[in-house]
Design a protein around this nucleic acid. Structure first.
Length: 536
RNA sequence: GGCCUGGUCGCCAAGUGGUAAGGCAGAGCUCUGCAAAAGCUCCACGCGCCGGUUCAAAUCCGGCCCAGGCCUCCA
């Protein structure tokens, strides 16, 4: 597809409107997103902040745009230093460890690797030279070993966050820092403190402030001006506002990101996440309980700019009664009196929304698997999808699926609407798969199912979901869930075999009793023509 | 206090001027030894409330009520 036209419409925070993504260079898009500060395990909010730009990148690529995607790692920062001190480790070791954990989480979540992933500590020279440029232009000043940005000297300050300097001064907390000319000035370079990592600079030993790294590194890899900057909503102020001040201050007004994309928050149980029980979970904690694809599907079920709520259900270990947030913090269950311990509660936590997502992803994979088997027979591999017979009519619902899906994705990455486009085709394919021979035109049936599989492969490239081999996914999901529930797979298979024998001999009572026994463990039995299968 | 979002079916959630997507739950049915899965049918004359603009409004304007966020580290 020639991408001469703006490929998609995207909401832009700076202009506060949806507008076509007009690329600096037709057919090519440069994207920068703020990656994590690596001082701890990443939480679900980080997952969303990574998945949103990932879907943007995937969508543009699928629409024929050549994308350069940069996502930084902030590997030097107060929190990293503090963490290292707590652990008796070094900031470098802390950063390295959590960078690796972050990569593992994102790989689980199906995020593509960025084309470049710059680290702050490897770009100190670029940072210093940018600060020097700001000082030369009167936009920054050295003060007692620190360097600060002179906010009042940058006229557009506040344009992104829609706040005037006066507004902010009125609402600002009084900050005691006599090194600053203005309380709103922010630090570009921090003078070294004893025992902290430090680099030589024109202002003495020190290290970069928080915001400057994104300005310096985006410039290095994407140029003075690039197409899209992505980040969480909470970064609009001060982080992104300051990036604009730095970059445009150094490179000129009109430079830097042409389009600002900000994703909404993830809330837990209706509250913004905080590190107290019940509303703070890491990616790893969640993916230990549910498939990572279910988490991704859940996060994409809501438009990226909206907040998304993670329902959390914490049952009492004693009586199973759901506990309110307050009750979770209590000593004992108000219903049965059982002692409550944090670790125990965290292990038993349930996420109803994720369970629904898990079931939905499972159901879609089941349809994909049945479709594959229909076309290729049992054991037919993923790559063995039969070519679509030419010029054969395909059921309308399936024929339109991909174009409708693509249209939704092109309209400000409306993943929720895009996913909804799959429902009708899914129903149609399921209908065709079980239809009696005389009910459908066999040629059309085959063509429709083949087309569906082909187009679902495209869908999976947009979303980063449904790309696994269905049989492999379903087996892994089931076995993992069985292990988590402490079920003995071999014992289940044995019961199932006994039941099949009973059924073959029409001993229905025995067969039903065995099914009840399996059901009591949560195992769902599915009888097909010749054989039975089980799932969870 | 300043600034900014959002209030759509029991729950989740699309829809930003043209007559309410989708998912879950629920009801009935088909298939089935019985189930399960799948499928079929049904499930918001109304989109926080009150006015207004318009041939036409969930969508635009004004007022009000409610919830949340940012202004400090934060995805």
């Amino acid at each position: 597809m020639a991408a001469q036209q703006p490929p998609i419409v995207l909401y832009d925070t700076l202009s506060a409107s949806k507008r076509p993504l007009e690329l600096l260079e037709p057919g090519r898009c440069r994207i920068y997103t703020c990656g994590p500060t690596v001082y701890d395990m990443s939480h679900i909010g980080h997952a969303r902040a990574a998945i949103v730009p990932d879907v943007l990148v995937r969508t543009l690529r699928e629409l024929g745009v050549e994308v350069t995607y940069a996502r930084n790692v902030t590997d030097i920062d107060d929190k990293i230093i503090r963490r290292a001190a707590e652990e008796g480790s070094t900031p470098g070791a802390v950063a390295e460890r959590y960078t690796a954990e972050y990569h593992r989480d994102l790989a689980d979540l199906g995020c593509l690797e960025p084309d470049v992933e710059p680290r702050v500590t490897a770009h100190v020279p670029e940072i210093i030279s940018m600060i020097e440029a700001l000082v030369e232009r009167g936009l920054a000043y050295a003060s007692d070993g620190d360097v600060y940005y002179r906010v009042a000297a940058f006229a557009p300050y506040g344009a992104l966050s829609k706040r005037s300097l006066e507004d902010m001064q009125a609402g600002a907390r009084v900050e005691v820092n006599e090194r600053k000319e203005n309380p709103l000035d922010f630090v570009l370079w921090k003078g070294a403190k004893p025992g902290e990592p430090a680099w030589a600079s024109p202002w003495g030993e020190g290290r970069p402030g928080w915001h400057i790294e994104c300005s310096a590194m985006s410039r290095r890899y994407l140029g003075d001006t690039f197409d899209v900057h992505v980040g969480g909503r909470d970064l609009i102020f001060p982080h992104h506002e300051n990036e604009i001040a730095q970059s445009q201050g150094a490179c000129g007004v009109g430079t830097f990101a042409r389009h600002w994309v900000h994703n909404g928050f993830v809330d837990f149980a209706g509250e913004k996440m905080s590190k107290s029980l019940g509303n703070f979970f890491t990616i790893r904690e969640v993916t230990a309980l549910y498939p990572a694809e279910a988490l991704r599907f859940f996060l994409l079920g809501v438009h990226y700019r909206s907040g998304i709520n993670f329902d959390v259900e914490v049952p009492c270990p004693g009586c199973g009664a759901p506990l309110s947030t307050d009750e979770q913090h209590g000593e004992a269950c108000p219903h049965c009196g059982a002692r409550l311990e944090v670790d125990e509660l965290r292990r038993r936590v349930r996420f109803p929304g994720l369970e629904e997502a898990d079931d939905r992803v499972k159901a879609i994979y089941e349809t994909l698997e049945r479709a594959q088997v229909f076309l290729n027979g049992p054991g037919g591999g993923q790559g063995a999808v039969a070519p679509e017979p030419p010029e054969v009519p395909v059921s309308p619902a399936v024929a339109d699926m991909l174009s409708r899906f693509r249209a939704a994705m092109s309209d400000d990455l409306n993943t929720a609407a895009a996913i909804a486009c799959l429902s009708e085709p899914l129903r149609e394919v399921n209908r065709l798969l079980v239809a009696k021979k005389k009910e459908v035109d066999p040629v059309q049936r085959r063509a429709t199912i083949a087309r569906f599989l082909r187009d679902m492969a495209a869908v999976s490239r947009f979303l980063g979901i449904f790309g696994a081999d269905p049989g492999t996914y379903l087996r892994a999901r089931r076995d993992r869930k069985a292990a988590r529930l402490g079920l003995d797979t071999a014992a289940i298979e044995a019961l199932l075999a006994r039941r099949e024998q009973a059924r073959a001999e029409k001993r229905w009572k025995e067969a039903d009793a065995l099914r009840d026994e399996l059901a009591s463990r949560g195992v769902v039995v599915n009888d097909a023509a010749g054989h039975s299968s089980w799932t969870l």
